[in-house]
Design a protein around this nucleic acid. Structure first.
Length: 784
RNA sequence: GCCGAGGUGGCGGAAUUGGCAGACGCGUAUGCCUUAGAAGCAUAUAUCCUUAGGAUGUGAGGGUUCAACUCCCUCCCUCGGCACCA
């Protein structure tokens, strides 16, 4: 029969809420901190994909509690961001109102799913009591010179009308809205994440994270070691950065980035042409640049020559936009023989190509090798030559990173105000009177001029300088969406503290996060930013660990039944509410875990949901049928189940855990189970399906399951006395035989050779060899 | 182009210190139940050979081994990321 999940689930959720079952109370050890990436409270609510991660961490949290851990498992809202603001522009409804409504809805979705969050620790990044500390961290960065203001050509989204960080530009498009970005010169707040490049790279090794994410961060940071070597143009030193100092004798021209400061100082014969090229390069969008990778353009500086320092040869000088102004020195020594880009360029402009390592036809040879054509350095290996040539030319050893500083200001309303006052006399003055609250405005529309809508509120903008008392103006830019999420995991530890972001003792106790679960899309955004802030706070002595998240796991997407990503605009979203209404929260939870490995993307299939629901109904019937049973035919089996489930949960292979439960019930059939067996079964399943297990636990007369421990299996019970041995002839399965455990080769062999099936296969043939793997297999090899 | 993950029935997937490939679920088929349907229950379900029984089979090809989904080499494809970083 169908168990009445609606009633049962409501009943237990009320009990948990009333008894504050999931509140983390003390500093007792051992602790376990399980964290989900907190969501943006979208108006559409969350879909079943979000809950795949939440259910997984909920199971981990529940198992850990049963194992005696003091579990911290909180939830909050990353609530600043564009959708609420865009909605406000359209409707005039303040983002605060929409946000609150959305949060109430999503919190309810989480509660009806039976997630065991400690709601007393709920946080919201848009709450002034929260962003006070976001601003406080910003002021510390400012104090230490890690936040600075600079006029920069930055990525600009014409649709969102705001600047973007490099990490937010995907394929030349805005990460949020998909509009092509352009370049714009605006004065920006920038955070010096590059100061932490080395530490961010190094400490990756200490983390239990998916290789994929580590690799992505490594590539994003992009470390390369080389030499800075001075070339000369008219007695001016022009440093270039190279990782291939060993190829210097093959350098046949020099290339400057269009932005290079030297260009304006040179007397170039074809000045007009050159300026035209520079102007064109400036206006190229990201996308144009990318599409032109295969077709390099450039222009020679006529009348200018550079001197190659290694052989005093005169070489031509070019400007080309394949050389980037912001990396290295903005100038490169071109070695067409040993660099693909230089090779292409040289072919196009008919420049000299001199091989000095090894030559191949029609393309550059980019590997290391042994030098020739290189004067006194002939015969050296590449790695030796790099050092020798670098030192010979008095070059400087240099490490460069691809990572660039973090563009931190946004020209929008719905974000944390940057707590800074700009005074005509004193310049940039920190406003220590935190929180600097976001004022109400009438119009949310971004101005598009590079100023945020805050700039129009005179009463807010015009203030007295805290330093000199003179006239001053507030900074009107706001922080990016990533600010609040860069440290939120610290606030959960002590969410109501008004004096510090978290009490030192508590921070020291709960950090680091033991398990962090979320989508892989944040690999070089949130996960990099949070590590940066954390390391900064560590250096200042405010936190006690070098890294915030010890173990990270990514959830795979849940795709809609059409194989596409779930999205409101495609109308293919499945909400947890409808599944819970139809089948119950326990079914939703079990199905999300049963779908497949949880790090993998899998298509949603409601037939599968029904299958899981059927299983829960069968579980119900099985327990009810046996609740007063004294006989037990399943004690051994349930102990085996205990072992298998414990092991699979440990590895977070929840899909197989559930298969084991199903196997058990299939095997059980009409066999009898006593209370001990039922209890073990229910305890094992409780983290997966807490409502039905709580109810059945009560029905079999055991009280409240919440206080119970994770069960231990009895090793003696599950030790087999007989084992099945696989018998192969010439490596092919022919027979099986049951023998006592640890039977010797001789025993098994004599048994096997008597068997009719085996006799048939070995008839008239000579046995050349018999292989035996104890308790597993015997392979009889015949002579050919 | 570079980096990473992966390729197993009709579908989602299981099994890797090398040892019964396809657990579990979905779907499908047949039967029971039902006035009928739905639900439920039972049985079957990798492919090929008419069957007993056998052969083949984990992207393709090769190799190591008594034994390969698992290890090695070459290649193909899918997904994700990066994108002229000298």
């Amino acid at each position: 029969m169908n168990y009445s999940f609606r009633e049962i689930e409501k009943k237990w959720q009320n009990i948990w809420e009333k008894e504050k079952t999931y509140e983390t109370k003390d500093l007792f050890s051992p602790k376990y901190y399980v964290l989900d990436m907190f969501p943006y409270p979208s108006g559409a609510g969350l879909h079943v994909g979000h809950f795949k991660g939440y259910v997984a961490t909920d199971i981990v949290a529940r198992v850990a509690r049963m194992q005696g851990f003091n579990v911290l498992h909180p939830m909050g809202w990353d609530a600043f961001g564009l959708p609420a603001e865009n909605y406000a522009i359209k409707t005039g409804i303040h983002p605060e109102i929409t946000t609150k409504k959305n949060i109430d809805n999503i919190r309810n979705q989480m509660k009806i799913t039976g997630l065991s969050y400690d709601w007393s620790r709920e946080i919201n990044t848009t709450d002034p009591n929260y962003y006070k500390w976001t601003q406080w961290i910003f002021l510390r960065l400012l104090e230490k010179g890690l936040a600075y203001k600079k006029l920069l050509p930055i990525n600009w989204c014409p649709s969102c009308k705001t600047g973007l960080a490099n990490e937010e530009v995907i394929d030349g498009k805005c990460e949020r809205c998909g509009t092509e970005t352009t370049k714009k010169d605006i004065e920006q707040w920038v955070l010096k994440i590059t100061d932490y490049a080395e530490k961010l790279l190094e400490d990756l090794d200490s983390l239990d994270w998916p290789d994929k994410i580590k690799e992505m961060q490594k590539n994003w940071i992009g470390k390369s070691e080389g030499w800075e070597i001075d070339f000369k143009i008219n007695d001016i030193n022009v440093p270039v950065f190279t990782t291939r100092a060993d190829t210097l004798f093959g350098c046949t021209y020099l290339v400057l980035a269009p932005e290079h400061s030297l260009i304006s100082k040179l007397k170039v014969e074809n000045k007009d042409e050159v300026n035209k090229y520079i102007e064109k390069a400036r206006n190229k969008s990201e996308r144009e640049r990318i599409s032109e990778i295969k077709d390099k353009t450039g222009i020679e500086l006529k009348g200018i020559k550079a001197i190659n320092p290694v052989n005093q040869k005169q070489i031509p000088v070019f400007i080309a936009d394949y050389v980037l102004g912001h990396y290295g020195t903005g100038a490169v020594m071109a070695v067409p023989a040993h660099d693909e880009r230089d090779f292409e360029f040289a072919k196009k402009y008919n420049l000299e190509i001199i091989f000095v390592i090894d030559s191949v036809k029609d393309k550059a040879f980019v590997e290391d090798g042994i030098l020739f054509n290189s004067g006194e350095f002939d015969g050296l290996k590449s790695f030796e030559a790099r050092e020798n040539i670098g030192e010979f030319l008095k070059g400087r050893k240099k490490i460069n990173y691809k990572l660039r500083d973090w563009i931190f200001s946004r020209q929008r309303y719905w974000g944390e105000p940057i707590p800074v006052i700009i005074c005509e006399k004193c310049g940039i003055v920190p406003d220590n009177n935190l929180p600097v609250k976001l004022p109400y405005v009438e119009k949310y529309e971004p101005t598009g001029t590079g100023e945020s809508p805050l700039a129009t509120i005179d009463s807010w903008v015009n203030v007295d300088c805290p330093k000199c008392g003179g006239k001053a103006k507030r900074e009107t830019n706001t922080m990016p969406q990533w600010a609040g999420s860069s440290w939120y995991y610290l606030r959960f530890i002590d969410p109501n503290n008004n004096n510090e972001f978290a009490e030192k003792e508590k921070e020291n106790f709960f950090m680091p996060v033991d398990l962090y679960v979320g989508g892989a899309e944040h690999a070089v955004l949130h996960l990099l930013y949070a590590r940066f802030w954390h390391k900064f706070l560590y250096d200042l002595g405010f936190v006690s660990t070098k890294e915030p998240f010890f173990k990270l796991r990514n959830i795979g997407l849940v795709l809609a039944s059409d194989g596409q990503k779930m999205s409101k605009s495609k109308g293919n979203v499945v909400s947890p509410d409808e599944i819970i209404e139809k089948y119950g929260a326990d079914t939703l939870r079990m199905y999300e875990m049963f779908m497949g490995p949880f790090e993998q993307a899998i298509v949603w299939n409601e037939q599968g949901v029904k299958g899981v629901h059927k299983f829960l109904n069968r579980l119900w019937d099985f327990v009810i049928k046996n609740k007063d049973e004294e006989l037990d035919e399943l004690l051994v089996e349930v102990n085996k189940l205990n072992k298998k489930v414990s092991e699979s949960v440990e590895k977070m292979k929840f899909n197989t855990s559930i298969a084991f439960f199903m196997e058990f019930l299939n095997y059980a059939g009409d066999k009898k189970a006593s209370k001990n067996t039922l209890k073990m079964l229910l305890l094992l399943m409780f983290p997966f399906a807490p409502h039905i297990c709580s109810e059945l636990w009560e029905i079999i007369g055991c009280g409240n399951i919440m206080v119970e421990k994770w069960p231990e299996y009895d090793k003696r019970l599950i030790t087999e006395e007989k084992v099945e041995i696989i018998i192969q002839v010439d490596g092919k399965l022919r027979d099986k035989v049951e023998v006592d455990i640890d039977s010797t080769e001789e025993t098994v062999k004599s048994l096997v050779l008597q068997r009719e099936i085996i006799k048939k296969w070995t008839e008239n043939k000579e046995v050349s060899k018999v292989l035996f793997v104890p308790n597993k297999l015997m392979n009889i090899i015949l002579k050919k």
